[in-house]
Every structure is written in C-alpha cells, then in structure tokens.
Write a protein that binds this DNA or RNA. Structure first.
Lengths: 198, 198
DNA sequence: GTTCGGTGAGAACGATCGTTCTCAGCGGCA
DNA sequence: TGCCGCTGAGAACGATCGTTCTCACCGAAC
C-alpha cells in the first residue's frame, strides 16, 4: 500500500512546517515533536532530510493539482467557465490565514540554487500546472499562447497575494484572464486588429 | 558619505552569494572570503547577519527599480511604449546566465515566514514596483486596474522564467500586457462590450 | 620612545542541526 | 524460560554557523 499512516503523519507535519517556516527553518527534531513519531522511525521512512523534502514536494504537487482539477470539474459546466473557476479556486486558497505563496516557488527560492532535486521538482510542478491551463484554454477555443499568458497571471497572483497579504490579486487576474480568453476565442468573428503580435 | 568602499565590497559579495545560493545557504565566512574583508571589519559594518541581509535587500531594491526606470525613460519616447519597454528590460534580465528569479520573492519564500523584516522588505519592494506600473498605465491612458493586471503578468514572468530556465515568458507577458493596455486605452472609442467586470 | 587605538589572521566559543548510537523494555516464538 | 528483533526515549556525535576573543602588529600622537 502506498499510504502508511505513520508516513502520512510525518508528511503532514513536514508539509505544514516546511510551508510555514521554510525548509531550512525546520529541524528534524521539530518534525519529530509535531508528528509524534520518534526520530528513529522518522529516519526509517526517510533516510535523510533531503528525502523527506522530496516526498513533501511530490505529495504536495499531486494533491495541489488534484484539488484544482476537482474544483474546476465540479464547478464549471462549460469550457469557457473553467479558467475563471481556476481563479476562484486560487482566491479561496489566498484567503486562508496560513497562505504563504506557492510552496514550489518558495522552495525554489530557498534551495533551487543549491539543490538540483528541488529545482527539478519546481520545474515539473510548474510545467504541469501551465500545461493544464494551456489545455483549458485550447478546449475553450483559444490558443495555447493565451493559456500561457493566463498561467503568468496565475503565477503573478500567487506571489502578489502572498507578499501583499491580501487575496485581491485573484480578482484582477481573473478579469484579465477572462478578457484575454474571450478576445482570443472570438478572434475569428470580431477581427479588431488589436491582437497583432509584438 | 553613503558609499564606503569596503561596505560596498561586502554588499557586492553578499548580493551575489545570497542571490545565487539563498540567504541561509551562505555563511559569514563565505562572505569574508568572497569580499576579502576580514570577519572583524565585516561585523563592524554589519553587527549581525540580519543587518547585512536588510542592507542587501535595501540596496537591491533601490538599484533594481532605478535600473528599470532608467531603461524605460531612455528607450521609450511615448507613454504607450513604456510598458512594453518594461518587458524588454525584464527579458534582458531573464537572459542573464545567473538569473534566478526575483530576489525579494526568493527571500520572502525562504525567510518571510520567520523574519518580519524580510517580509516587510519584500512587501515594500513589490508595492513600489506595482505602483510604478500602475503609474505607467494611467499615464498611457489606461486604468489603475490594468496597471495592476500588468504587474501580475510581470510577476508571473519573473518566476516562470526562473523556474523554467528560459526567458520566453517575457514575450508572452509583453503581448498580453500590450493587449490589455491598448484595449483599455481605446475603451471610450471602441466600446465592444468585452470589458465588463467579472 | 612609548602608549594607544585600530588592524589582520585565525582560533575559539556556543548554539543549532542532521544523523547515529545507547540502553532498557517488550512481544513473539521455540 | 530464554532468546531475538524491534521499539521509544533521548543522549551523543560531528559538522556547520553566527559571533567573539586572542594576539601580535602597525601607525599616529605626545
């Protein structure tokens, strides 16, 4: 089985602490205290802190994307509503009191320069997220480029909401995304000349 | 005088190292070796590592914004050209081999959860950058909201370029920004109904 | 010439942290 | 009963790191 309960308890504690205080700001003894798992068993599941960090990022990657996709699929009935639904999901995330930005951006900023594993995990996560948005864009009738632009809006909203401490960036990003999407979706019907490439 | 040469040498070494490896990934002895300044004199200028970090962020904030403004003012002749010029400047930054994202986003991700000083420095820097973009937008005839949306594109481009390792995000962001800007600038002349609020 | 404040070089100190070891206890099993 | 493997609790080890101290040295002031 893939989900040993003690392993999950360790990862639960590690995720909360790493996300809140940064990876280097959390010692293994703190994870021991928070999880209630003894240091010996902790090292049985994760032979080094680096392994625990990789598992933390892997699980968060899967859960984060799954949660986003689940929200989009249950709350949006038409392809045109899916991208706005992404920003609604982001907004509810930003409003959480413990929100502190994207865990992968934070990990990359902290360790991406020295740990190829962390840098690769961030790259994979972002590539999956952006590919999902590009797919939503094309399924709504827009180009992949518009999907990439909407991904930039989502990324910017995540960091801006984190640093500013307010969730308002999601509304601005949602408005801009909707505009880019509808303009591109209708580009064959209403050629205004506004979408010339730079 | 504000620019003691040894102080600058210390900050030069600290900036390069902190940016490349993260703040906690660089010990004071490494900064001593890189700057050629002895540990004793280092602590005379900066009584603690926290003070050095604050000075690093303060100087980078000022220089970064000054460099951006200088590029925009010298390369753009009309208000409409200023926001595209911002993304040209970003692109040349992204193309540098040592590019590793925004130093303030990285510092916030690493220490924002435990250091109020670092969190406040990141907030001030981002607020100044976004206010500058909002000013560019309004001086080009658009609304402040469009300026805020363009700021999100710029933020997203910074992190995407860093994590993906390619500078292509700046082109996508520039295209989207130009579109948002021209649409909003011409909104009184060409009312298409596309800019209804979400 | 002597004193004195400041210097460079580096050792040293104290705390933290990742990791491993010790040791007593306990359940399973012949 | 006696052995064995695993456990929890925590001490211990070794490395790193921020910070301070030692000590010999030098230039300037009297």
């Amino acid at each position: 089985m893939d989900t040993d309960p003690t392993r999950e308890r360790i990862l639960d504690a590690a995720e909360e602490l790493f996300y809140a205080r940064g990876i280097q700001g959390v010692g293994m003894d703190v994870i021991r205290d928070a999880s209630g798992v003894t240091l010996r068993r902790l090292y049985q599941f994760f032979p080094s802190k680096g392994d625990l960090v990789e598992a933390y990022l892997a699980r968060r990657d899967a859960r984060w994307l799954d949660s986003l996709v689940a929200h989009v699929e249950t709350s949006a009935d038409t392809p045109e509503e899916r991208i706005p639904a992404v920003f609604d999901w982001l907004e509810s995330w930003f409003a959480r009191p413990d929100y502190r930005g994207c865990a992968f951006v934070n990990s990359f900023g902290e360790l991406g320069g020295t740990s190829p594993q962390v840098a690769a995990a961030a790259r994979r996560h972002k590539e999956a997220f952006h590919a999902y948005l590009r797919g939503l864009a094309t399924s709504a009738g827009a180009t992949e480029d518009v999907g990439a632009q909407i991904a930039l809006l989502a990324e910017g909203a995540m960091t801006t909401a984190a640093i500013s401490g307010t969730p308002s960036a999601s509304r601005q990003a949602k408005q801009a995304a909707r505009l880019l999407l509808t303009l591109d979706t209708h580009r064959t019907r209403t050629p205004t000349g506004a979408r010339t490439a730079g």
